[in-house]
Amino acid sequence: MPDPVLEVRDLRVQFPGRHGTVTALDGVSLHLNAGEILGVVGESGAGKSMTGLAVQGLLEPPGHIAGGEVWLNGRRIDQLSNRQMEKIRGREIGAIFQDPLTSLNPLFSVGSQLEETIRLHLDMTRAEARARAIDLLRQVGIPGPKERIDHYPHQFSGGMRQRVVIALALAGEPKLIIADEPTTALDVSIQAQIIALLRRLCDDLGTSVMLVTHDLGVIAEAADRIAVMYAGRMVEIGPVREVLRQPTHPYTRGLMDSIPALGRRVAHLTQIDGSMPRLDAIPDGCAFNPRCAHVGPRCRRARPALMPTGAGQNACWLTHGGVA
């Protein structure tokens, strides 16, 4: 098997604060192969976006990587300076943000923002960069790219703007794109188009995508593998079919059960009781133990590591020797 494009090993992110240090990510490990889409799901605050930001070196101070390693294309990047990361961001890691309405600078035409990114990362003249910008707009499906290139962000609709954002993410020919909730701010009909576009670009260009979302539907449609996060930890990771059909972690199962099925009317939607613990009050042992229906003494005592199960991995005593 070839080296993965991205490999995150035992990543730990901490935020020192007045009332002690908060550990936002605790022992997160994942990898992405070439041309693969990895869906990262979890509740708000589970650490999905934080993982993406940590990989890009974009954590807001005082947040910092306190442990673990990040390897990109065979090179360790978690210890690089900000100046070195500037060369990697855009060139080796593209980014797509949640809200296309605010991701673009309103005062510059989309062309000038595209050309800026292209010329920062690729050795091109102004004219070449412009030709490439037009080409990128065409690739992401913007009609009339020759005219549209000189338009300003406010002249595009939300969906079109997200296409521009994707074009910007592709501008430096990165091997990896981190897409943080790329469809959340869009209409449902547009969501499907954007997901299909991402899938197609991934296949055509061989780009890997880390798709951060809380929408399991999007994951089911686009991702090859899925990683489920809870309270800053990875709880289950595996091929998307297996995980969605036969989730092995009680939390993943709870997530699946809480999705209403079409065409079936139910009096109550199933939900996971309780809420995710605050990051400064995570219980001992398994972080999910207060909400878990299968909880046993071992779950309160020892923290389960990510261990292989079937086609994937999970972190649950239930499938690894029992909870007693």
Binding site: Q56, L58, N82, R83, E86, K87, I88, R89, G90, R91, G94, A95, F97, D99, T102, S103, L104, N105, P106, E116, T117, L120, H121, V165, L168, A169, A171, G172
Partner: peptide, 13 residues
């Protein structure tokens, strides 16, 4: 956001 996005696409500080 657009400043964060500019950082994410590698624009120097």
């Amino acid at each position: 956001d657009f400043v964060k996005f500019a950082r994410a696409r590698g624009v120097p500080a």
